[in-house]
Lab assay of single mutants.
Amino acid sequence: MTGIVKWFNADKGFGFITPDDGSKDVFVHFSAIQNDGYKSLDEGQKVSFTIESGAKGPAAGNVTSL
């Protein structure tokens, strides 16, 4: 699925993605970002991701920028 990064705190390594389908915002951890180098996201960035079952509920996985 796709969405827009609502916010991401690079110091803490997590944030939230707002899915394009209008569903509830999804937690994203830096370890789910699939790019080389520094793993961070920018507010407003368009991303593709999967929904994984995290310890505290749904979380984004396999996050790639579009």
Score class of each variant (00 low, 15 high):
S53C: 14
K56E: 07
V47R: 00
P58R: 15
V26G: 00
S23H: 07
D21G: 08
M1C: 11
G61P: 02
G57E: 04
D20Q: 06
D11Y: 15
S53H: 14
V26I: 14
G54F: 09
S65H: 12
G54H: 13
S65C: 13
M1T: 09
I4H: 09
T50S: 11
V26Q: 02
L66Q: 09
F49S: 00
L66A: 09
G54S: 14
G37H: 09
D11I: 13
P58I: 13
Q45K: 05
D20E: 08
F30M: 11
I51H: 05
F30D: 03
P19R: 04
T64D: 05
G61V: 15
H29D: 04
I51Q: 05
G61A: 15
S65F: 14
Q45E: 13
K12R: 12
D21K: 06
W7V: 04
I33K: 02
K12N: 06
A10T: 13
T2N: 06
G15K: 00
F49P: 00
I33L: 09
G61K: 15
V26C: 05
A60S: 03
F49L: 04
D11F: 14
L41D: 01
D25C: 06
E43D: 10
F14W: 15
P19W: 04
F14L: 04
S23W: 05
M1V: 10
S31E: 05
V28K: 00
W7M: 05
K46I: 11
N62S: 10
G57D: 04
L66G: 06
K6G: 03
S31C: 09
V63F: 01
K56V: 08
A32C: 06
T18M: 12
D25V: 05
G3Q: 00
G3D: 00
T50H: 09
V5D: 01
T18Y: 07
T50P: 01
Q34S: 12
G13P: 00
P19L: 06
D36H: 11
A10I: 12
I17C: 01
D25K: 04
F14T: 03
A32M: 06
K46A: 10
D21W: 07
D36A: 13
I51K: 08
F27V: 03
S65R: 14
F16C: 04
F8K: 01
T64S: 11
I51P: 05
F14E: 03
L66D: 07
I33W: 06
I17G: 00
F30R: 14
L66V: 12
T18Q: 11
P58A: 10
G44A: 05
V63Q: 01
V26M: 05
Y38W: 15
V47I: 05
G37T: 10
G37L: 10
N35H: 11
T2S: 09
D25P: 07
V47E: 00
G3C: 01
K6L: 05
V26W: 03
A32P: 02
V47P: 00
F49H: 01
F16I: 06
F14N: 02
K12M: 13
K39P: 10
K24L: 10
V28H: 00
E43R: 15
G37V: 08
A55F: 13
G15P: 00
D36K: 12
D20T: 08
K46W: 11
H29S: 05
F30G: 05
S65E: 10
A59K: 15
S48F: 13
V5R: 00
K46L: 11
T50A: 06
P58N: 10
D36C: 15
S31F: 05
F49R: 00
K56T: 09
K56D: 08
L41G: 01
